[in-house]
């Protein structure tokens, strides 16, 4: 078993992404030998069919669970099938497929338990809205204050994790902005987290799920959840 190359599963949570998911899945399938799992979070459109036609394994959630619940389904599947590494990437074309090896490399070399793609390390084309940038700064301060990690992009949804974190997240994964919360969980597990520079683009299709008003709500909610995870009994 040890001599085999580690098995990698690419997990893509998707909600109403019929126009972009096909391209993302095909691009991954053409470039890499990895399995692709799309978790369709109860989309009413053709997301599920399009992803399946493009060659992904698709899990159809019977109702909308939100981003955390959808991603966690991917971890459950990965644990069930014994994958060594999960790469989580967006289905809207925001993340650069070509950067997948960058988040994989430190894991394959055993240098980290989690590798997070940061849009703020190195040169960046990313231009976020003002509330989004403000939110990112807030969470960056929060993570840096309460964990030992020095993080530039705490809400990045482009990351790779190894077996240890897959097993843990399959049972414990936060709901909204799970990436912010996951830092405190990783910190408490003593996991080694590493950021690498990746390219991110503004969304090509659809609107961001976050409006200014909801941004405030999420900031309060995620901050609360983060602080509670700091004092919660885990594991």
């Amino acid at each position: 078993m040890e001599s085999n190359p580690p098995s990698v599963l690419i997990v893509i949570p998707a909600y109403r992404e019929e126009r972009t998911i096909g391209q993302v899945v095909s691009a991954i399938r053409e470039t890499f030998p990895y399995d692709v799992l799309v978790v369709n979070d109860g989309s009413p459109d053709r997301t599920s069919d399009v992803a399946r036609e493009a060659g992904a394994t698709v899990l159809d959630l019977p109702c909308n669970l939100g981003i955390g619940g959808a991603v966690q389904t991917g971890f459950l599947y990965a644990r069930d099938r014994g994958y060594d590494i999960v790469v989580r990437i967006d289905g809207d074309g925001q993340h650069e497929i070509g950067d997948i090896p960058k988040v994989l490399e430190p894991l394959l070399a055993g240098r980290a338990d989690a590798v997070i793609g940061s849009r703020f390390l190195g040169e960046t084309e990313y231009r976020g809205s003002i509330p989004r940038i403000f939110g990112i700064r807030h969470f960056r301060g929060l993570v840096n204050l309460f964990t030992g990690y020095s993080v530039t992009d705490p809400t990045s949804g482009f990351f790779a994790i190894n077996r240890r974190l897959i097993d843990f997240y399959a049972d414990n994964y936060p709901s909204d902005y799970p990436e912010v919360d996951s830092y405190i969980l990783m910190h408490r597990l003593g996991a080694r987290a590493l950021e690498v520079p990746v390219r991110m683009y503004d969304r090509t299709e659809g609107k961001s799920s976050i409006t200014a008003f909801r941004a405030v709500y999420y900031m309060v909610k995620v901050t609360l959840s983060f602080l509670i995870n700091r004092i919660r009994r885990i594991g």
């Binding site: 599920s48 069919d49 394994t57 899990l59 159809d60 966690q72």
Partner: peptide
């Protein structure tokens, strides 16, 4: 949430990932 996740995984196992549910969709 747990049940929805289990259902999604069981459905995939049952159909072997070959077809979507035709009753879902536009």
């Amino acid at each position: 949430k747990k049940m929805a996740q289990e259902i999604a995984m069981m459905k995939e196992k049952a159909t072997g990932g070959t077809s979507g549910d035709p009753s879902i969709g536009p």
